[in-house]
Lab assay of single mutants.
Amino acid sequence: PAHPYDRLKTTSTDPVSDIDVTRREAYLSSEEFKEKFGMTKEAFYKLPKWKQNKFKMAVQLF
């Protein structure tokens, strides 16, 4: 299930529990994912792991 970005980011005051914290981005809706990352999930997962992590750090999901 998708969760709002505000509850997934590492600085959230009301974090979602029971998620894989190493894959926070996977819980974003497709729309919100595209808004935050500027690309689709499919394109994101084709990137090298280090680049994925760099993007995730930039949007507080790492």
Results as ranks from 00 to 15, higher is better:
1 P>E: 13
2 A>S: 15
2 A>Y: 15
3 H>W: 15
3 H>A: 04
3 H>S: 03
3 H>N: 06
3 H>E: 06
3 H>M: 08
3 H>I: 15
4 P>N: 07
4 P>F: 03
5 Y>L: 05
5 Y>D: 07
5 Y>S: 06
5 Y>H: 07
6 D>P: 00
6 D>H: 00
6 D>E: 05
6 D>R: 00
7 R>T: 11
7 R>M: 09
8 L>E: 10
8 L>Q: 06
8 L>H: 09
8 L>D: 11
8 L>M: 02
8 L>V: 08
9 K>H: 10
9 K>N: 14
9 K>C: 15
10 T>Y: 12
11 T>A: 03
11 T>H: 07
11 T>R: 00
13 T>K: 07
14 D>C: 12
14 D>K: 08
15 P>N: 07
15 P>C: 10
15 P>Y: 04
16 V>T: 06
17 S>Y: 13
17 S>C: 14
17 S>G: 11
17 S>R: 10
17 S>L: 15
17 S>E: 12
19 I>C: 09
19 I>T: 04
20 D>A: 04
20 D>M: 03
20 D>I: 02
21 V>W: 08
21 V>K: 07
22 T>C: 13
23 R>P: 05
23 R>S: 09
23 R>G: 05
24 R>P: 05
24 R>Q: 06
25 E>N: 02
26 A>W: 15
26 A>Y: 13
26 A>R: 05
27 Y>T: 05
27 Y>W: 02
27 Y>E: 09
28 L>K: 03
28 L>H: 03
28 L>V: 03
28 L>I: 04
29 S>W: 04
29 S>L: 01
29 S>D: 07
31 E>I: 11
31 E>F: 11
31 E>V: 09
32 E>K: 02
32 E>N: 05
33 F>Q: 01
33 F>W: 01
33 F>S: 00
35 E>I: 08
35 E>M: 11
35 E>F: 06
35 E>C: 10
35 E>S: 10
35 E>N: 07
36 K>I: 15
37 F>T: 01
37 F>P: 00
37 F>R: 00
37 F>D: 00
38 G>R: 12
38 G>M: 09
38 G>D: 07
39 M>T: 03
39 M>Y: 03
39 M>S: 02
40 T>N: 10
40 T>S: 11
41 K>G: 01
42 E>L: 11
43 A>P: 01
43 A>W: 06
43 A>R: 10
43 A>S: 14
43 A>D: 13
45 Y>Q: 04
46 K>R: 13
46 K>W: 11
46 K>V: 10
47 L>R: 00
48 P>L: 02
48 P>D: 06
48 P>A: 06
48 P>W: 13
49 K>V: 13
50 W>K: 05
50 W>V: 11
50 W>T: 05
50 W>R: 05
51 K>Q: 12
51 K>L: 15
52 Q>V: 01
53 N>T: 10
55 F>E: 11
57 M>T: 06
57 M>Y: 10
58 A>W: 07
58 A>H: 09
58 A>D: 14
58 A>I: 10
58 A>K: 13
58 A>S: 11
58 A>V: 09
59 V>M: 15
60 Q>R: 05
60 Q>H: 15
61 L>V: 11
61 L>F: 03
61 L>R: 02
61 L>H: 03
62 F>N: 14
62 F>W: 15
62 F>M: 13
